[in-house]
Design a binder for these strands. Structure first.
Lengths: 225, 225
DNA sequence: GACATGGATATTGTATACAAATGCCATCGG
DNA sequence: CCGATGGCATTTGTATACAATATCCATGTC
């Protein structure tokens, strides 16, 4: 992270995820270089990585811009993520070790603590969640699967969705993690796969519902103006 | 392709796929730059792309080398490819159009012609095969799925395997393509998914068998020396 | 003889200058 | 007024120089 190109990558990524750089915005290399306090060379490298992540797009004439995620793109990403994470869960269940299981339980305790408070600790929830999924990926033992999933998780949409989870949704998510842990403890790959599929697709529909609600609100607001 | 970085990418990629740069070989940027007739800047970009393709690896201290594919890596890649291409086939079947179907049939005719001759036209077979799978991916209509599969197809192993296909294997492969086409014509997603899974996994086992045979031959040769 | 240490050497990371291309806009002709 | 054309401004692509870092080998010490 101390290299200039890594700093540029993180900085630009954060600006995209936070919405500071809105979808469709042009990304001039010179301007980004100045923002990040580095030269164009590491910025170019960062842009190439972000392009691979599909966070930025590129016109036919090599101009880069913040990728615009249509609702179909989001559905697409969630579908693929469901398939890949489900496979990871199955493999993890088949390969589970006691130490890994202990770490998964610890991550779940973190999660559990984060949602106990009157006002849920969303950052804590996200940390525990990330850790949980990371351990599964590690136990699944497929570098390739990990690489593919890397481009699908922590997309803008995923983060923003989690932030507006209701307490009920957080509780439900935690319950699914507990059930997944049970499947892991029994080394039941089919069970783990099924729960994980459901876990991700439920998250998708939570997002889709919130998105529709936002759209409706926007329409009403327009009508009122 | 006219850009220096694209030329470098293709050149290095070909050297890896052809085995000219053997697995584990160090890839000095300076040396590659000279080989490709460009400066280090585009070479660096090419190496980053090849790293994303997992054709090259990187030590903890940023030195790049030709990735070494263990038999487990290959199995891993084929498994993922089977899952993803099967999903693409299902989506394609559900979204199939008549023009696309016509193009798929044309690709199959190319394939068919390539394996008719006494000595099969392997290059022609590979072209038809590539076209066939490309159309499916296009009709599937998921940019993300296409991006993920891009890193899994045309790996060194895949290419080398096809080149040593027997006539019987080529004929079998073609027959599966015909069956896939039938599934597409009927818009039967489940059927298409099942055939595609089988199609890829059969290719994997053809590779695995050939690999084992090679290993045995090597052992015997060693013993004879 | 094994191992640590130091510096020479090689390699990668970054900045900058310049070349090539693209986009923009004003001007001109219809 | 609309569209084409030419040239200026902006942006990206490449080469190169220099800085930072890692590797390697020789030397010295225990």
């Amino acid at each position: 992270m101390s290299r200039a190109s890594d700093r540029a990558y993180s900085a630009i990524r954060n600006m995209i995820l936070s919405g500071e750089l809105p979808a469709g915005a042009q990304l001039g290399e010179e301007a980004l270089a100045e923002m990040c306090g580095v030269s164009r060379t590491p910025v170019r490298e960062a842009l190439r990585r972000l392009e691979a992540d599909m966070l930025v797009g590129r016109t036919d004439t090599q101009r880069t811009f913040v990728a615009d995620w249509s609702i179909d793109d989001v559905a697409d990403a969630f579908e693929l993520r469901a398939m890949l994470e489900a496979r990871a869960a199955r493999r993890a269940a088949e390969r589970m070790t006691e130490p890994a299981l202990a770490r998964i339980r610890a991550a779940n305790r973190t999660l559990s603590a984060a949602i106990q408070h009157p006002s849920p600790d969303v950052a804590g929830f996200l940390d525990g969640n990330r850790e949980f999924h990371a351990i599964i990926l590690e136990v699944a033992g497929s570098r390739r699967l990990a690489a593919l999933l890397g481009t699908l998780i922590e997309q803008p949409v995923v983060l923003r969705t989690a932030r507006q989870y209701s307490r009920e949704e957080l509780r439900r998510s935690h319950a699914e993690h507990e059930e997944l842990t049970a499947a892991f403890a029994r080394r039941d790959g089919a069970w783990a796969e099924a729960i994980m599929t459901s876990h991700i697709l439920r998250a998708y529909h939570a997002y889709a519902d919130a998105h529709r609600a936002r759209l409706d609100a926007g329409t009403q607001q327009e009508a009122a103006e």
